[in-house]
Amino acid sequence: MTRSDIPGTHPGPRTWRKPPFIASPLLRYGLWLMVVIYLIWAFATLPFNWDRIADGLPRAARIFGGGFPPSFERGGLLLTGFKESFQIAILATLLGVMLSIPFAVMAAKNVVPKPIYYFGRSVIIVSRSFHPVIVAILFVAAVGFGPLAGILTLTVYSIGFVGKLLAEEIEEIDWGQVEAMKATGAGYFSILVYAVFPQILPRQVGLSMYQLDSNLRASAVVGIVGAGGIGGTLMNAFGRYDYDFAFAILLIIIAVILVSEGISGWVRKKIW
């Protein structure tokens, strides 16, 4: 397969094949076999409803036909929906970013005792494991339809994301400053405030901007399960086959997301 002999001692024509990426042929072909078996298994077990799927093209034509041109007639409804989405995103970011600080401290190995660390870590893991829509459904079930469920959802979402990155940041701080504070005889919380927080603050501001942007995106989605905002309006439009209105909402959502992404990126560049 590969050539290992010394130059000049070689009789006859030489061959060369590219050394395979995975050296063991058993493993190499085994992997391919596994992929093939997986594909067969997946396609065989997935329940495709082919009759209904075959129906897709005419339906797509109907939906897109009904959707163009998008109708902005019910602008008032559109505006209310977006206003609520913004409010949800803003309040959830504020709450989430504030709450993420204590959870981040709890989830940072170097500043808290082991049991608290495990608690903080699991809170963050759990809130990161669930897609915001699942959290939203639970909050809708608990506190009813409306923006309150949305705010709670996105607060949890923000705690998970910001808390994780912030905890990593705390674990990487310059320990010298902490020791300097300890040497002055400062208490635990003064050390946190004077030696830890100043080091993570710039990062926190950037993360907040990022989180505001992703909360705005998510707020358009949690409405689909009834947690307020434009998502609910979109869901209703789809439910009532108002495709022209639905497409109008979609276009505005895309536009808002692009603008918000641009602003958030610009602000983060300014800060860092």
């Binding site: 495709f48 409803n49 209904r52 799927i53 129906d55 339906r59 979109l234 869901m235």
Partner: peptide, 12 residues
Amino acid sequence: LLFVAIFGPGVL
């Protein structure tokens, strides 16, 4: 949401 409207509920 869009694809459910087109192809019906399901994995596709």
